[in-house]
């Protein structure tokens, strides 16, 4: 599970935007090497095992195989579930983060409970949630909401807390109204960190989606797809599921980096 407690620096996460072409190709070196070694191992007959499936069979699976075709519906169901859970979780998280960061009273009243709750490993929620909401979609959605909620809240709070005091002095000297303080100082100042929170929340929501589907077996989803593959000992199905998981995660990161990089253009080139 991703460590939700450590706020990640703005530069480290968003600095990757505008990746140069040579860096992109360099990043492809390891995956390419794995593909070559994998293919060679299988086709040269170096290893004889049902665990090692030729890559081309995995890629063909969602198009030409009865079990493989279930991928599409599963993937669709997972993405819908994730978007729902993420939206609610990130919204609540950002709201709580703003409240904690803007109100001393709220921080004193709610802060300790929040920080205690977030120490609970996400997987530990599963037995509780299934007891409360059953094995259906309710539990899964709540689980996804939780996985998006904590990083969103944490990074929003952190973003507000780390706005330099210097800027608050400017705001005082300029005699900002409350509204100006919020719209000109607090929100834009916290935005880079809020975006990181959203990015991490998306990833944890995705992991949470698959985890909940895998652990709370009933229903469609990429997690259930994986679980079925394992039960039928279809290694090709399992590997396909893992591959798709990784691709979706990668796409989320890429999209966030691009979008947030553009929205934070005022930071200049942080590389």
């Amino acid at each position: 599970m991703v460590d939700l407690s450590a706020p990640i620096s703005v530069q480290a996460t968003l600095g990757r935007r505008g990746t140069r072409p040579d860096a992109f190709w360099r990043g492809l070196a390891i995956p390419a090497a794995i593909v070559i070694v994998w293919t060679a191992t299988v086709h040269l007959g170096l290893v004889e095992s049902r665990l090692l499936v030729p890559l081309e069979r995995i890629v063909a699976l969602p198009f030409f195989d009865e079990a493989g075709r279930h991928l599409w519906l599963g993937l669709g169901a997972s993405i819908v579930r994730m978007i729902g859970g993420f939206t609610l979780g990130a919204f609540l998280g950002i709201a709580l983060g703003l409240l904690l960061g803007m109100s001393r009273t709220a921080e004193r009243a709610v802060g300790p409970s929040f920080h205690a709750l977030r120490q609970i490993a996400l997987f530990a929620w599963i037995p509780l949630l299934t007891a409360w909401f059953g094995n259906g979609d309710g539990s899964k959605i709540v689980y996804i909401v939780l996985s998006a909620f904590f990083p969103a809240a944490l990074h929003t709070h952190e973003g507000l807390r780390t706005i330099p005091l210097h800027y608050f002095e400017v705001a005082r000297v300029m005699r900002f109204t409350w509204w100006q303080r919020v719209t000109r100082l607090l929100l834009p100042g916290a935005l880079p960190s809020i975006f990181i929170g959203i990015q991490i929340a998306l990833i944890t929501a995705w992991i949470g989606t698959v985890g909940s589907e895998y652990a709370m077996g009933i229903g469609r989803g990429i997690g259930s797809f994986l679980a079925e593959g394992r039960e039928q000992f279809r290694m090709d199905v399992v590997l396909l599921g893992v591959l798709v998981l990784a691709l979706v995660g990668y796409a989320i990161n890429l999209a966030c980096g691009r979008l947030f990089g553009r929205l934070l253009h005022w930071q200049g080139d942080t590389r």
Partner: peptide, 18 residues
């Protein structure tokens, strides 16, 4: 101490906005 998220124009205007 310019606000990095505002243009020169908007930074200068902060005092007027208040």
């Amino acid at each position: 101490r310019l606000f990095p998220w505002l243009t020169v124009e908007d930074n200068v205007a902060l005092g007027l906005d208040a």
